[in-house]
Amino acid sequence: MDITRAKLRQAAELMQKHGLDCWIIEFARETGNHSDPLAYLVGAEITWPSAFLLNHDGRSAAIVGSGDKGQIEGLGLWDEVRGYVASPRDELVNVLRAWNPSRIGVTWSDSDAMSDGITYGMYKMLESMLDRTPYKERLVSAGELAGEVRSRKLPDEIETIHSAISFTEQVFQRIATQLKPGLTEIELQKAVQGWIREAGHGFAWEDRINPIIDFGPKSEPLGHSIPGDTKLEPGHLVHVDLGITVDGFSSDLQRTWYVLRNGESEAPDEVKKAFAATLTAIDAGMAVLKPGKAGHEVDAESRRTIMEAGFPEPQFAFGHHVGRVAHDGAGVLGPRWERYGKTPEIPIQADNVFAVEMDLDVPGYGIIGLEEEAVVEETGARFLSSPQRELWLLKSR
């Protein structure tokens, strides 16, 4: 809970910057049945409609069903915990009356999924409970605040992310020992999942496609493919995309190998060209990944190098935040495409942690994918992962 307390303090300190006097961090119900991206600031799941509020001066209040009151008090996170039986309306209004905020932030966003906490139904309930009070008209979006709190990592968060990265890199080393002709994608996936579970760790996204494993050429577009019965053969590229959760924080890394054919001592020229282009794209983006830059500016530098090298324009963003989940919201290092909403415009800040990536299809051989993790510091970005700087070669026997 120490990180949660620190994040609540961080949030209170940022509220003035975002023009908010009070933040209704979570207004939700039955969070055990559907997750709320702001639950990490609450500390527990709740059943009845509940409100968790933070004032700009650091005071906090939780309004929960009587059955949840004991567990929320036991967390020691909230200055006051108010229980109710029939409705949270009176307690909610009493807290707002005591604090008298002019602008009340509610966690919703039309661009950032990880800052879009309140459901439409709960927002309508909130409006109903504040009907005939001055507070209903004071509700505004707290999406930008929620995004900044999530994306500006504290030192303990960065340290734990690094632990997840380190374990993931150990798994990649172990994967290399298993890569022999005849092995299938699904066999490798099952083995990797067994290692992760044996270590007591979790998966940064659904295990059905974690890790993503691609042996050899693919007929479908680049993407989140399901490992199948394809057997590894000489002349195949091996692409693995793996994310592991350690102590509540995640990694997201990609690595690539090439299986040498008989008589080969190095990869074919077209494979080497694609790997070099991928590496150049990573380096170009990293060179401009600095505080104050917008995400689309970083993406543009990486994207430009790929197209100048003669490859098709990438159909995905160069990077994304990593933290409690692999795709941690709050901004994207991507182009100004409608699907990304306003997130490519969000300025990069110190203490952001990003996954930066590039993937290329090499016809006849398979997929080359590199993905690293980096922390943004005052003067630029620094790798948290140990970057793959050369194509790893495997002997076929």
Rank of each mutant, 00 (worst) to 15 (best):
Trp78Lys: 01
Lys293Tyr: 03
Glu148Leu: 11
Asp252Phe: 04
Gly329Asp: 11
Pro268Ser: 07
Ile104Met: 05
Asp351Pro: 03
Leu130Thr: 07
Trp99Asn: 06
Arg150His: 02
Phe275Leu: 08
Tyr40Met: 04
Thr47Gln: 13
Gly19Cys: 10
Gly67Lys: 07
Ala86Ile: 03
Leu360Tyr: 13
Ala28His: 08
Arg138Gly: 10
Pro291Leu: 04
Asn94His: 05
Leu370Asn: 04
Gly285Cys: 12
His56Cys: 12
Asn94Thr: 10
Pro181Thr: 08
Ile161His: 07
Ser265Asn: 13
Glu264Asp: 14
Leu41Ile: 02
Phe249Leu: 13
Glu185Asn: 10
Glu157Gln: 15
Gly43Val: 03
Lys231Ala: 13
Gly223Phe: 01
Glu372Trp: 05
Ser141Trp: 02
Ala326Asp: 02
Phe354His: 13
Ile213Ala: 09
Glu13Arg: 15
Ser35Tyr: 10
Gly331Pro: 06
Leu20Gly: 10
Ala374Ser: 14
Val325His: 03
Thr230Ser: 08
Ala142Gln: 01
Ser386Tyr: 01
Glu266Cys: 01
Asp269His: 04
Pro227Trp: 06
Val240Cys: 05
Gln16Ser: 14
Tyr258Ile: 04
Arg97Val: 11
Lys342Met: 10
Lys273His: 12
Ile212Phe: 03
Ala267Tyr: 04
Arg261Lys: 15
Asp116Phe: 07
Asp283Thr: 09
Asp2Leu: 12
Glu301Arg: 14
Phe172Trp: 03
Leu53Gly: 08
Ser386Gly: 00
Glu345Val: 01
Glu390Ile: 05
Cys22Ser: 09
Gln178Tyr: 05
Gly285Glu: 06
Glu30Thr: 06
Leu75Ala: 07
Phe311Ser: 07
Glu185Lys: 04
Ser35Glu: 11
